[in-house]
Design a protein around this nucleic acid. Sequence first.
DNA 1: GAGGTACCCTATCGATTGATAGGGGTGATC
DNA 2: GATCACCCCTATCAATCGATAGGGTACCTC
Lengths: 211, 211
Amino acid sequence: MAAQESHEEEVPTRERILREASRLFSRKGYHGTSTREIAEAVEIRQPSLFHHFPSKRDIMSELIDIDHGESSIVAERQAAGKGSAALRLYRYLVWDIAFICRCAYDLTSVELVVDDPIFADKMAKRDALVIARRSMIEQAIDSGEFVSVDADLAEKAIVWILRGDIADTAGQAVPDADVVADQLASFILRALLEDASQLGEIRAAGSITEV
Amino acid sequence: MAAQESHEEEVPTRERILREASRLFSRKGYHGTSTREIAEAVEIRQPSLFHHFPSKRDIMSELIDIDHGESSIVAERQAAGKGSAALRLYRYLVWDIAFICRCAYDLTSVELVVDDPIFADKMAKRDALVIARRSMIEQAIDSGEFVSVDADLAEKAIVWILRGDIADTAGQAVPDADVVADQLASFILRALLEDASQLGEIRAAGSITEV
DNA sequence: GAGGTACCCTATCGATTGATAGGGGTGATC
DNA sequence: GATCACCCCTATCAATCGATAGGGTACCTC
C-alpha cells in the first residue's frame, strides 16, 4: 500500500502487449499486423517489444496456450466422467463459453492461426480438444439422449459456434457472460436432444454443481 | 472440337490464379500469402500475376464478390417472401450451404478479411445479408414457429456455422453437397423450432420447389 | 558508491514484400 | 508481312518487415 498506486490501473507492459496484440491480430490477422503497430498501441517503441518477447511468433504462441490450456482440461475431464453425457457436454459448453466471454484477450485469431504451418507444433492440443468433444457427443447418441446425427459434423458445428462467439465477444469483458453461455449451450443442446423437453432438467442440473 | 483439346482440362490462367489464391489465403491468411507463392502455385512468374489482376488486393476483392453476390440475392428474396418463415429460412440455408460445397474456390478467407479495414468497402453487402437472415428469424419467432430466442444471437450462430462449413469444405468439390446442406440446415432448424416434429414437413416442402 | 538488473530508447540491419519497366514470342487480322 | 493484342519473361524498384546492436536511466542490493 506504500509503493503501490491507489489507482491500481497499473497494467504491466507485458500484459498490455498480449492484450493489444490479440486485439490487432483478430482485426487484421497475425501476418497483417506488424510489430510496429503493436508497439504503437502499447505506446512503446517497436524494439522494446523484444525485451518482453523473443519474437512476434512467441506473442501469438502464448495466446494460443491461453486459449487451449484450460479448455482441454475441462473437456477431457467431462468426457471421462460418468452419468448423462448430454449434461456433461452442457457443463463443458457453459464453462468454455463463459471463459471466452470473461477473457481479457481477443482470442479470435487463435483458431485461425493454428492451421498455419508455422504453428504446426500447437495442433496436438487442439486435436485432443476435438476428440474430447466428439466423445461426449457419441456417448449421448449411444445412450439415446441425442438424435442420431453425424457426430463429426455435430462436433464441427459446435466448434464453429464457439469460434464465432470468440470472434464476437472479442476480448471485451462481457457483463452477462453466464447468460450468453447458457443461451448458446441451450441452442446447441436443443439441436441435438432427442427430447427437447429434457433441456430444462439439464440446465437446472448444470447450473448447480461445479465442473 | 477442332482447335480445342479433347482433354478439356484447359483452365484459363486467370481462373487458376483465383483458385490457387483462395486456397493459399485460407491456409495462411491474406497477408500471410505472398504474390510469389500464388505465382508458384499457378506455375508462372510473380510479375505475370499483374497482367491478370491490377493488384493482390483485387484478387481477394473478386473472391469476396463471388461469395457475397448470389447469397445476398437469395437471402433477400426469401426474406421478402410469404408463407412459413421457417420454411423460407430452410430454403435459403440449403441453397447457401450447397453453393458453398460446390464452389470451385476456397472462400474461407472471405469472412475473415471483410473485417479488415483495407476491405471496408465490401462491408455493405455483407451487412445486407445479415439483415435478411435476421429478418427471417424474427418473422418465425413472431409467428410462433421458432422458440423465443435472441434473434441477433441466433443469426450469429447461423453465420458461424455457415462460416465453419466454408472453412471445412475448403474449395474441394464435395460430392454429397445436398446431403451436407440438409444436415446442417436441419441442425439449425431443430435448434430453433418450437415444435421439432415440424422439421419433417419443412424438409419435404423445401426439397420440392426451387428457390 | 559500485555492481547488477530491468526497461526503454535511437539507429540500423538483411530479407522480403507488392509492384513497375521494358523486352520477346505467338497468333489472328487486315 | 505489317500491325496489334495477348501473355509471359528478366531485372529491379521503394517500402516495409522482424530483429539486433548498443547506449541511457532508474532502482535495488551489498
